[in-house]
């Protein structure tokens, strides 16, 4: 009995915590008149749905596409560059490994808003700002790579070394044992890390805002920030935009929730 009471309280707390998400969807369903109402109505009285207008009126297809390009680019680059390093760091031991891990951690903690200045100037000199989405991909990869390595390292460390050695004796080269034994057995951690990198990059703001000037190449966050101007009052539109933008993210999250929690805890602890 007490356990069900706890469940009820738990649902109450979780609901209260996630209220901002509810509020986003609720506002997206209210018309302008209902939005300015005070006190606000908790449940939309005349649900009304305005996806098309916001979606096309605000050029969301282009924004979302650009966000997707950035997110896919970053994720691909991070997987290619980081998986092997995570594997080695999860396997080898010694002073060099500690030093490398320390370096990776230091790169992870750097705030994007601080490193964007030198990256911008450097990319400008290198002529990379002519392909601004690539510039954002390169910058965001540097940000996401350490995170990915740290999370994946934990799952590689969880693959028994014996298995790879058995594979070597069975006839694999080390490279092949990495691909055919270590990677498949660590795939849960790799998947979680890759998904998190993808989501982070899909919602990236600082680099896109600072490096992309052509509106046609802007990402969804920058499109939203233009919408969020200082004197904005179109909350219906903003929340519709937000809802369209984050719903796919939330769906991915719900589908993979248990793996994400498991992967994060493993990565964070070790």
């Amino acid at each position: 009995m007490k356990r069900y009471l706890l469940t009820a309280i738990g649902i109450g707390i979780t609901g209260a915590y996630l209220f901002p998400l509810y509020w986003m969807y609720a506002t997206a369903l209210k018309d302008d008149a209902e939005i300015v109402q005070y006190p606000p109505t908790l449940v939309p009285q005349r649900p009304f749905w305005n996806v098309g207008e916001v979606f096309f009126g605000r050029h969301m297809p282009s924004y979302l596409w650009n966000s997707l390009v950035v997110a896919v680019g970053v994720t691909a680059l991070v997987i290619v560059l980081g998986t092997g390093c995570a594997y080695v760091l999860g396997r080898a031991r010694g002073r060099w490994v500690d030093a490398l891990l320390f370096f990776v951690l230091m790169m992870q903690v750097l705030p994007s808003s601080l490193v964007v200045t030198p990256l911008f100037v450097g990319f400008n000199l290198a002529g990379l700002l002519g392909t601004p989405r690539l510039a954002v991909i390169l910058a965001q990869t540097a940000k996401a790579l350490p995170f990915y390595v740290v999370i994946c390292r934990a799952s590689f460390a969880g693959v028994p070394r014996d298995l790879e050695e058995a594979a070597l004796v069975d006839g694999h080269s080390r490279l092949a044992a990495f691909f055919h034994i270590a990677v498949p057995l660590a795939r849960n951690g790799i998947l979680v890390a890759a998904v998190l990198v993808f989501l982070q990059s899909f919602g990236e703001y600082v680099f896109a805002r600072s490096m992309i000037s052509d509106d046609g190449l802007q990402t969804a966050t920058v499109g939203l920030s233009a919408f969020l101007g200082p004197n904005t009052s179109d909350w219906h539109g903003i929340m519709t935009y937000s809802a369209i933008y984050v719903t796919p993210i939330l769906i991915i999250f719900v589908l993979l929730q248990r793996r994400i929690v498991a992967g994060l805890t493993a990565g964070a602890i070790k």
């Binding site: 594979a167 004796v169 069975d170």
Partner: peptide
Amino acid sequence: RPPRQRDVAMVFQSYALYPH
């Protein structure tokens, strides 16, 4: 030579069976 060119078989203490 690497292990695969030695034609040896090994039984590990942990057995090291591929779980997948």
